[in-house]
Amino acid sequence: MADLEVQNLAKSYDGKTKVLKDISFSVKNGEFVSILGPSGCGKTTTLRIIAGLIPETSGQVLVDNKDITKVPVYKRNFGMVFQSYALFPHLSVFENVAFGLKTRKIAKSEIKEKVAAMLELTGLSDLADKFPAQLSGGQQQRVSLARALIIDPELLLMDEPLSNLDAKLRLKMREEICRLQKKMKMTVLFVTHDQQECFAISDKVLIMKQGHIDQFDTPQTIFHHPRTEYVARFIGYDNFVPVSPNSCQDNYHVKAGETVLTTTEDCLNAKVLTIRPENIVLDLKEATQNTFDGKIINREYLGQSFKYTVESKLGEFKVEEARQKMRSSGDEVTLTLPAKHLHPLSE
């Protein structure tokens, strides 16, 4: 496995509109990095350029500091798992997994040994002679993974590999991929649009928006310190309070309309403050700051908690409250936004 570095990657299909604008990031040996974003944000394009399936418009891809941008796809030593699995329908499971070894002209006896070992590792030994059409989705997924891993790739690319599986199987495969990644110390680049999935398995997450990178950090950092409103929305910050930048003299107070809000982070240039629904407190008696009145207008039951929609002078808030006492629509409440959970966003 190897280091990957992407420098100033740009892509345009028609010469005018850029689907990728100046993408740069690096992935260290053994790291699991996810690219997260909605469809059309350029995440799959990025992955396919790195794989060599489509040519870049400008920029470089480096593996272990060697520029591989002009190396044709079939001469790069990568593994890839496709969303459709892309198994060879005319080949058995064994032959599918052996394909990459055969193109490398490896001796038959060695192929047999390696494939058998890989099938063992991925729990496919009993299915060696089956054809893709005879396999379940999860089994096809495993074959696809085994086929990618057997060539000992420098980099494993995965393009929404779990999106065709049902919810239960998705969790199981997720764990399995994690286990294999740790065991084989793989460098992985994983494309997904599922926030939960990618936070659960990644060392670092790269969030893309309309062809550029909005944030590239560890899941923890992103979760607690989203850099932009776009990222915040993507990871479940439901509440956004527009504020006037530079509206107070010091760096820890800012005005939302006539209300002054306090933060623990520098909010001098903030345009918006954001807070997660579970961090808002209702009817806090000893509240001294960031507190105001509201009225409940809707309630949803989430199992562990209730989610309320509260109307206030600062707009509507989503509030998640994990307590048994149920509030009802029309109840008057006071909202408190704890300063340490209130994040200023400048874009």
């Binding site: 796809v73 079939y74 394909f99 193109t103």
Partner: peptide, 16 residues
């Protein structure tokens, strides 16, 4: 034909 299958072959080192 699913073009991804040919892409998979290319990534596994198969020339056109």
């Amino acid at each position: 034909l699913n073009v991804e299958i040919e892409e998979a072959a290319a990534i596994l080192g198969s020339n056109p």
